[in-house]
Each structure stands twice: as structure tokens, then as C-alpha cells.
Design a protein around this nucleic acid. Structure first.
Lengths: 206, 206
DNA sequence: CTATTATGTAGACAGTGTCAACATGTGTTC
DNA sequence: GAACACATGTTGACACTGTCTACATAATAG
């Protein structure tokens, strides 16, 4: 897909290629072991070429994370639009999409949320895209509130609760922390449903 | 505290010292940049000494994670016993303890949940201690169910939902992902409360 | 006391991120 | 179209890292 369209020098769009090779490598080996020189090798350029496009390794990881958020946002958007007529169904669909994305790209998700987070503000476009995700969720909440299916507390706060539940479920699953409960794929879908339903309906005795 | 009790050779309890130095270093710099040689240097031994106690860097990280889970378990236990008369209060207390621990030790928590998770089963004692945490939560659930304050679904599943909410809240906070909503410390305590209450009471319009 | 074992040291090696100096295309301006 | 500046890519170097092997020393068992 990323055609190195010229003959030798001047790769075409090396920046984009490096990001995608990086995603590939992160998916295969672990995340912390992302190897800049290997990325360059696979992209077919010399070991110092990436420095023409990224200030350092962290900058490449930031770009990779940003691409990850973009991919996740696409999945979420699709999940939301598939169940347009019920807020509760939208919430469940979002949860499934989020967890499914994490299972499909565990190392990428790990890096998106733990790579260089201390200095997240140093990468504004990364910050922006994650804010966009927040807004997507909040929109669902607000519409649900208007239709009377979601209670009318502060929509910002409810969005935090929803994102927290989705994220916690996804992370604990990919980190094998819920192993005793979620042995098979089926168990994973089921437990995701349980988590989202617990949030929607509450834990209290009815 | 960790007194190198002999004069030179034979450090005393190097293993424990390495773990604690490692926790210190991880807390200061990032997690992924844990430097084995630096750990050895600070512990006052040669760069190869750690290899008498840990097979490789991953093994040290596993030991550090394990210690982290131990510390977290202590905090949780305390939070649970402080509110012994109400299951809902116990849940809120656990949430606060979990989030507070993550805020106090962000890099450690990051490493506990994303360091070497793919091969978690290669470190059985690490797996055991995290299972212990799961059981602590489940005990609260079961007792709450007996008292009629928590609904009587599968306690394993409810435990997953609770842990997911606590974990998601903690991670999103330390990763600055809820920034717009949680500017100050006060906001953090508040949003933790909101998340736990949303789970306890549900999102639905009442 | 001596021999074995546990623990620590010294030195080497390949591999990594990063930098500086150089090379080669691309595009602009007269 | 020629001369130039700029963007992009290459080579070689450097300090540093994880890890291995061979050696040194302390603790302990017989």
C-alpha cells in the first residue's frame, strides 16, 4: 500500500511508512521494545533516516499513539451509528467496540495509554484526538438524557464514568487480569456485557 | 532501612534492595526506562550483580510489580475494614483507595499493569497476588449480597465490573485523560466518587 | 580446616538511540 | 536551462545498555 514510488533516495512518504511499520512491530513484539533501527530497516531506509521526520523515539511513539486513537475513534463511531435508536444499546455497543479494539491491538492500546503519558501535553495533536473520543461519548450521553433514558446529572461526569468502565474492562482483559472469569472469547463478550450492564442498571439490589 | 549490614562483598539482602531501588527509579523517571546498571550502581554493587538474583531485567520488573500489588492490597484491605458496616461505603472506599494509590505511584501502577503482561503466567507469584486482590473485592460483594445491599447476580461477574470501574478511573486519571473534568485534586476525589456512584446506582433515569 | 556453594566483580560483546558530517535529489529563481 | 537552496537520506561515530563468561571472595557444611 505504501508504495515507495521513486527509485532510491527520497522514499515518497517515509513518515507515514515509519508509523505503520511501527504499529506492526509494536503488535508483534512488546511495546517497550520498539526498535527504531529495525523500523528503519523494514522501511528500507538507513538507521538515521527517521530523524528527518521525528525528533526522537518518543515522537514516533506519539505519532503511533495518535494513529491508534484515530483507528479507535473510527470503530467507536461505527458502533454508535449502528444502534442509533437506543442510548443503552449505544453504550453497550461502544463497550464492545472498545474492548474488541483492545483485544485486536493489545500492544498498541498499551502504548496509547502508557507510553509517554507524563508529557502528553507536549504532543498537542495526540491530546486533541483523545479529547475527540471523550466528546463522542458525551454526545451519546446528552442525546440519551434528552430522550429520558439517561439520568440528568452532569454529562461530563457521566462520560467519565462510562469511559472508565469501558477502559477498565478492556485493560483488565488484555492484561489477563480477569482470567478466572473470562476463559474463552465468549466469556469475554459476556463479561463486557456484564460490565456495561452493571453500569447502566447499577449494582444495588432491585 | 535496607542496611547493607556487612562491610563489602555480600551485600546482605541485595534482592530486596534491588527491588526497592527499582521502585524508586521507576517512580522518578519513566517506567520503560528502568536502567539495570543504574539500579546496581545505586545499590552499591557492580553492574552484573543483579544477575545473581534475577534472570534478566524482566524478572526484576516482575518482582517490582509483585511488590506493587502487595502495597496496593494493603491499602485496599485498610479501606475495606474502615467501613465495615456498609457494602456501598466499602465500594466507595475501595475506589478511593485504588485511585489514590495510582496517583501516588503512577509509574509503578503503569508497570504493574503493562510491563510484561503477555507472559504473566511465567511469574506465578505475581499472578497469585493479583488473584488475591480479586478475591478481596469479591468478599465485599458476597457479604453485601447477604446483607441485601448488592444484587444477587454472579459475584465473580460483579467483581469484574467493580474492578474494571476502579481500574479504568485510576488509569484515565493518571494518564491525564480526564483532564478537562478533573483539574484539581478535589476534582479527582469528586470524579472518583461519581464513577463509583454511577456503578452502584446505575446510569438509568430514575 | 578444607571444600563447596552462594554471591559479587571485571571485562567483553552485540545492539541501541542519537548526533554530526556528508551526499543526493527537488524545486526555485534569474 | 543553469545555479542555487532546501529537504531528505546515508555513513560513521559515540556513549550507553542488557547480558554472557571467567574470575574472586565470603559463608557454610563436612
Amino acid at each position: 500500500m505504501d508504495t515507495p514510488n521513486k527509485k532510491n533516495y527520497h522514499h515518497g512518504d517515509l513518515r507515514k511508512t515509519l508509523i505503520h511499520v511501527g504499529i506492526e512491530l509494536i503488535s508483534e513484539s512488546g511495546a517497550s521494545s520498539l526498535d527504531l533501527r529495525k523500523v528503519a530497516r523494514i522501511a528500507g531506509v538507513s538507521h538515521a533516516a527517521p530523524y528527518r521526520h521525528f525528533a526522537d523515539k518518543k515522537a514516533l511513539i506519539a505519532a503511533i499513539s495518535e494513529e491508534g486513537f484515530n483507528l479507535l475513534a473510527i470503530e467507536m463511531e461505527q458502533a454508535i451509528s449502528m444502534k442509533a435508536n437506543s442510548a443503552h444499546e449505544q453504550l453497550r455497543g461502544m463497550g464492545h467496540a472498545y474492548v474488541q479494539f483492545a483485544i485486536t491491538n493489545p500492544s498498541l492500546v498499551r502504548e496509547m495509554f502508557s507510553g509517554l503519558t507524563i508529557e502528553r501535553e507536549a504532543y498537542p495533536s495526540l491530546y486533541d484526538i483523545s479529547k475527540k473520543l471523550f466528546n463522542m461519548i458525551e454526545t451519546v450521553v446528552i442525546i440519551g438524557q434528552e430522550k429520558g433514558n439517561i439520568k440528568k446529572s452532569d454529562s461530563n461526569e457521566l462520560t467519565c464514568a462510562i469511559w472508565s468502565m469501558m477502559h477498565g474492562t478492556a485493560i483488565l482483559i488484555i492484561e489477563n487480569q480477569l482470567k478466572p472469569v473470562t476463559m474463552q472469547i465468549n466469556g469475554i463478550e459476556h463479561i463486557t456485557q456484564v460490565c456495561m450492564d452493571s453500569l447502566i442498571l447499577g449494582l444495588g439490589a432491585s
